[in-house]
Design a protein around this nucleic acid. Structure first.
Lengths: 215, 215
DNA sequence: TCGTGGAATATCGTATACCAAAGTTGCGGA
DNA sequence: TCCGCAACTTTGGTATACGATATTCCACGA
């Protein structure tokens, strides 16, 4: 086992990322850097590094001399995110299912169980577990870049899910879909997994569309 | 026209990025931050910001307290990059071709001409123009995230092209392929563009495979 | 001879202080 | 009312310092 030493700016990166996803940080308002730095108890160097990375991830925008802002949500970008996920994730998961070794299969099961445990608690926590489950279906393919991309897109998508989807009737349906996804994954049934995952992602997109249309 | 004010770290980001692409920076050797900062005439804050962004882009890796290294080239990652490009770029370009307005169409033509002009000069310059051409076929779709992703993947792919493909007989064939791509784009023939682009990307991948096999 | 321990050195990650330039705010005058 | 200017705020950047970790290299002992 290799212990991972994490640098301060990496931790700041993750903290701010989760704050953005949960909608804790306001959009359209520039981030006050010194205030944030003081609040997190770090200096501006790791903070700025984290902000730059978050911009690269697509969660922040910046304008020179005016600072960083949380990128606004818009229906068009949600469509983009889901179109990209549909283009990548099902195929990547299908591949991973076929080549996954025991550790990868265990990780998928565990991610599913953690998602299950979190169900019913606050939406943000569920969203994180949901993302981890989706990534767990792809990671065993051992394609680093693809996995990172899936994770990145999942993160971008999460904002929309957290912001727009009340966990009304969705929860039960999502649970069944996740169960089916895991079954197909464990059965190494790439074709079925691919179809199910496309349907699952498409269903979430449809929910989002409905909310956008309603609001 | 909005003039774009760019910060130092953005410029450093691009400078180092091009150096990585051209293979000017050694892989497997940690970057000496002080030396690099001194050479570029900047302090370490903008430099580190740029390095962090480049890591996020997948061009660098970092280990805490050991610094940043240029990510090594490997056949597996090239396969990944091209698989992702094939999953995204043809469809995105097809869409863009259909919705492109006059500015987007002009930009595509100009990108093609610039690529044409650069042909024959050094490989790195051609590679940049090549990337810009590919992006120009996607940008008119006005899907920001997709365009950024295509650009990012093109950048990652460029390293392999620069490193492994001597512009032997490739140049002439690539020129014809680009010409055909532009024609299909201007004709708004999405289906044809999609097929041609998939073939074009696939051809480059095939060339790379051959080189990897040979070496 | 070879491996181990440890000191010396180099480099990284972070903090602090400071500054110039750009943006923002608010007040006063036309 | 609306414009322009001055004061303030914030950002982006530099210089510098310092602790912590890595690396190097040499001496010592098995």
């Amino acid at each position: 086992m290799s212990i991972v030493i994490r640098t301060l700016s990496e931790r700041v990166f993750e903290i701010i990322r989760e704050r953005i996803i949960t909608g804790e940080l306001p959009t359209e308002t520039p981030l006050r850097q010194d205030a944030l730095a003081a609040e997190l108890g770090v200096s501006k160097i790791p903070l700025r590094e984290a902000l730059g990375r978050l911009q690269q991830e697509g969660l922040l925008t910046s304008q020179a001399n005016r600072g960083y802002m949380v990128r606004a949500l818009c229906a068009g970008q949600a469509e983009e995110i889901y179109a990209l996920r549909l283009a990548i994730e099902p195929a990547a998961a299908a591949y991973a299912a076929q080549v996954a070794g025991p550790p990868g299969r265990d990780a998928a099961v565990q991610a599913f169980e953690r998602l299950d445990c979190a169900a019913g608690s606050n939406l943000a926590a569920v969203a994180i577990r949901n993302r981890e489950f989706h990534v767990a279906l792809v990671r065993p393919g051992d394609r680093l870049l693809t996995t990172q991309l899936v994770e990145r897109l999942s993160i971008l998508a999460e904002r929309y899910v957290v912001a727009h989807l009340a966990p009304a009737g969705r929860d039960a349906r999502a649970h069944q879909e996740h169960r089916a996804l895991l079954d197909a994954f464990l059965a190494r049934d790439g074709a079925r997994l691919e179809a199910l995952l496309a349907a699952h992602i498409g269903a979430t997109l449809a929910d989002l569309r409905e909310q956008f249309g309603a609001s």
